[in-house]
């Protein structure tokens, strides 16, 4: 029932597009992240390691590619809020990666469980730590877990083309 109550995009384009633009900034890493990061910032190595762990899990579990996309956006947003993250064990990074993956899987309602995600041995974290980390991420990201990706704007852009071939339009949409 909660799945997709937002009405479909085609029906209300003129309302939805400004809303998407307005929303996009709520779902991006904080502004200073991209500008202020120095190359020796510890967070860069955390990010790099977390992303590689996420892709590793993707390789083992072979889930929909939207899941690593979402998970990486959570990692970025979370890291960008931690200004004084100067040290930490790789265990914390693993915990962050798996918790973001788990949240992304829940957000997309895939039914992937934490044990599915931990099939690869590099990943093992206990479920209580993951639960706590999930809550920390949720509150840090202010529960704004939807993501505005370039795909969200897709209908808007194809509507700009004056296509007269309905099967082509349908094909693009699918």
């Amino acid at each position: 029932e909660l799945e997709n109550p937002l009405t479909s995009f085609e029906e209300h384009q003129s309302d939805t597009v400004p809303a998407l633009f307005a929303n996009e900034s709520d779902h991006m890493p904080s502004h200073y992240f991209s500008h202020g990061l120095k190359s020796n910032d510890f967070r860069i190595s955390v990010r790099r390691e977390a992303i590689s762990l996420i892709f590793q899990a993707q390789f083992y579990c072979n889930f929909d590619s939207i899941i690593p996309c979402l998970a990486i956006s959570y990692v970025d947003r979370f890291i960008s809020m931690q200004e004084n993250w100067n040290e930490g064990s790789s265990w914390i990074t693993r915990l962050l990666a798996i918790s973001c993956l788990s949240l992304a899987a829940k957000m997309k309602n895939t039914g992937l469980s934490i044990s599915d995600l931990q099939r690869d041995e590099g990943f093992v974290c206990d479920s209580q730590s993951i639960r706590r980390m999930e809550l920390l991420i949720l509150s840090t990201l202010n529960w704004k877990m939807r993501s505005i990706t370039p795909f969200s704007f897709f209908y808007f852009f194809i509507s700009l083309f004056d296509l007269e071939d309905p099967p082509l339009i349908q094909g693009l949409r699918d």
Partner: peptide, 30 residues
């Protein structure tokens, strides 16, 4: 399993709704 997916999706949606004719979500305590 921690916070259920349905709750995460539901709250994420409520966080995006901001309309004078919608009951608004003021706070989430976890």
């Amino acid at each position: 399993d921690g916070v259920p997916g349905s709750v995460i999706r539901g709250v994420a949606l409520l966080k995006e709704l901001d309309h004078p004719n919608i009951i608004s979500l003021l706070d989430v305590l976890d």
